[in-house]
Every structure is written in structure tokens, then in C-alpha cells.
Amino acid sequence: MRLSVAMCTYNGEKYIKEQFESILTQTITIDEIIVCDDGSSDKTIAIIKQFQIEYPNKISLHQNHINLGISKNFEKAISNCTGDYIFLSDQDDIWKKNKVEKIIKYFQVNPSMEAVFTNGDLINGKSENFTQNSLWDFTFFMESQLEKPIKLYDHIIFKANMVTGATLCLKKEIKELILPIPNIKKFYHDEWIAIAIAYRNNLGYLTERLISYRIHGNQQSGFSDNLKANKSKKYQLKSNHILGHDVPKSFKECNQLAKVYYRNYIKFKTASKEAKEGFPVNFNEIAEIYLDQFKKCNDSLKKSNPFFYFFRNLSDKIRGKRQLN
């Protein structure tokens, strides 16, 4: 059994040393770390090269001549991995010492699974836990409250993607399925991978917090209880509406949902054009669901408040937003 790590870096000098150390001191040894750097201008490359000296033949560094962006950079890193299991890694988190061991045991007990994701702690720029909330709270995956077995595919498509790439491990057999990963605005590599595998009912998860996920800079200042509550309310509103459990009760809610539905329509419509032939998910079908919901919200807006509906549409037209061809 050979184990790989696909790590993407970009100006990560502040935290990458801690991440490397956490990966290299696992209770089960990693065989290779494939690092794809997207044009760092700080000391990131120097730090990586120092680790290469300390751990010869373990770390492979690929420096991009042009900036690829996060999804295409992870595509490159994954494609260069040779392991039977591929762990995705950000540059600024910290792995718990038994992360690899726990995940490999999960695969051994559940051999039909093609990928697994986990929960995590939240830490700040000083590597300190600053909240009792978990990574799943941050991504609105209320696992303990959901009916089992959880329909992971429906959750990702209709509520929110809760699969954080930094916790994800893949079997090598699915590389051909998930690659290439298209470069679509706000449709990142982890969601792309999660949708493909969840559709096949081969996505698993561990409730244990196996990484410390770092929230720093603007991220940390944005993670407040009020923001979390507002986002949670938005995702709950969307999922209840699209699954037929509830209807928006105000012009504001209709308008909010219309914006969300249109963004998702465009995202999945674009994905339907970018997905290679034979990709298992029908993104066009998902896009049409969101388009239908967008139109229903627009009808509700028009009926509830024609005056605001007129001026919202006029404003959208002037700004070129939410215009259907």
C-alpha cells in the first residue's frame, strides 16, 4: 500500500512548516508528498526545498510557470500522485497525528468507498482553538441532526457542500473519473470530486476531527456567530424550498432565493459544458432544477410586490445580472 499527499501552495511561508511536520510525523508513514506551487513570491519554495533535503526522495516539488488557480493546481497535484490512496492537503492546516491511520482503517472496513472526508477543529493564525464549533459547523453539515443514512449527494446539490478538500482522501482508481477538474467560478475541486463520488454512493465520512483547519486573516474576522446564523438560515431556507418543505414568506426571502438559484443555475450550466464525456453526473439536469426554482421565485416576487419587482428587474438589466438568454 502506497500513500500520497497532494498539496497545493501559494505564498504559504507563515504556516507551511507546521503542516509539513504534521504530515511527516503521522502514525502511518506517508510515502510521497506531491507539492504544486502556483507561483509563490515569498519563502515558500525555500522552506519546501529545506524539507526535501531533510526527507530525500519523499517530497516532489512542481513549480507552475503560470498561475493555474486552486482547482487546476489540485488537478495537477492529484494527477502526479502515484499512491493507492491520495490525501489532499492545504498549506496552512495541521493534521492530527492519527489522521492517516484512522482514514486507512475506514477504507479497510468499508472497501466499497472511493473517498472519505472528516470533521475538524478550527484554529486561528496562532494555531489556537478559538471556538468550540467544528469545521462541519462552519460548512453547515449538521450530521448528528440528519436522518441516517444521510443522502450526501442531495445535501451537496441542494443545500451546501460540506466536503472540505483539506480533509478528503481518494482512492487512486477514481483519478480517471474526476480528472480533469474544470476551472469554474465558485465551483472548486472539492465540490466537483464530492458530487461525482456521492452520486455513485461511494462517498463516506468520519465524524472525528482529524485536522485543525486554520481560519486566519479576513477569514477569521468573518467567522462570527451572527454571520454563521445568517448563512445557516439562508442554506436552510434554500433546502426547505427546493425540497418542497417550505415556501418563502416575504419579498426579501424570495429575492434572496432567486439570487442563489440563478448563481447555481449558471454554475451547473457551465459545468454541463465543461464535464468530459462519460462523467456520471448530469449537470444540465441540476441546472434546469435551479432554473425552474429561479422562475418560481420570480413569479412569487411579481405577485407579492410588483413595484419592487419592476425596479429590481430594471436594475438587473442595467447591470447585466440574472439575464436569461
Rank of each mutant, 00 (worst) to 15 (best):
E101H: 06
K102R: 10
K102Y: 04
I104Q: 12
K105A: 01
Y106R: 15
Y106N: 14
Q108S: 14
Q108D: 13
N110R: 06
P111T: 01
S112A: 08
S112G: 03
M113S: 14
M113Y: 13
A115F: 00
A115Q: 12
A115C: 09
F117C: 02
T118L: 00
T118R: 06
N119Y: 08
N119P: 14
L122C: 13
L122F: 14
L122Y: 09
L122D: 12
N124P: 06
N124W: 01
G125V: 06
G125W: 02
S127A: 10
N129Q: 07
N129G: 11
F130T: 04
T131G: 11
T131D: 06
Q132S: 05
N133D: 10
N133A: 11
N133G: 12
N133F: 09
S134H: 09
S134M: 01
S134A: 04
L135W: 09
L135R: 01
L135E: 10
L135C: 13
L135Q: 02
W136D: 05
W136S: 04
D137Y: 03
D137A: 04
D137C: 11
F138I: 09
F138S: 10
F138R: 00
T139M: 03
T139H: 04
F140M: 11
F141N: 02
E143G: 08
E143H: 02
Q145L: 13
Q145Y: 08
Q145N: 05
Q145W: 06
L146I: 14
L146H: 05
L146T: 11
L146V: 12
K148T: 15
P149K: 00
P149D: 04
I150T: 07
I150N: 09
I150K: 07
K151M: 08
K151L: 09
L152A: 03
Y153D: 04
H155L: 13
I156Y: 11
I156P: 10
I157H: 04
I157Y: 07
K159Q: 06
A160D: 04
N161I: 03
M162C: 15
M162L: 08
M162F: 14
V163K: 12
V163M: 05
T164V: 14
A166E: 12
T167A: 00
T167K: 03
T167N: 12
T167H: 07
L168K: 10
L168R: 14
C169T: 15
C169L: 00
C169Y: 02
C169F: 00
L170P: 15
L170K: 02
K172S: 15
K172P: 14
E173P: 13
I174R: 06
I174G: 11
K175N: 14
E176T: 08
E176A: 09
E176V: 08
E176P: 01
E176Y: 01
E176L: 07
E176W: 01
I178C: 05
I178V: 03
I178A: 03
L179E: 07
L179H: 08
P180T: 15
P182M: 03
N183D: 10
I184F: 05
K185H: 09
K186L: 12
K186Y: 13
K186Q: 02
K186W: 08
Y188E: 04
H189F: 12
D190L: 01
D190W: 10
D190Q: 05
E191M: 10
E191V: 07
W192E: 07
I193Q: 09
A194S: 11
I195S: 07
I195R: 13
I195T: 05
I195N: 05
A196L: 15
A196M: 13
I197G: 15
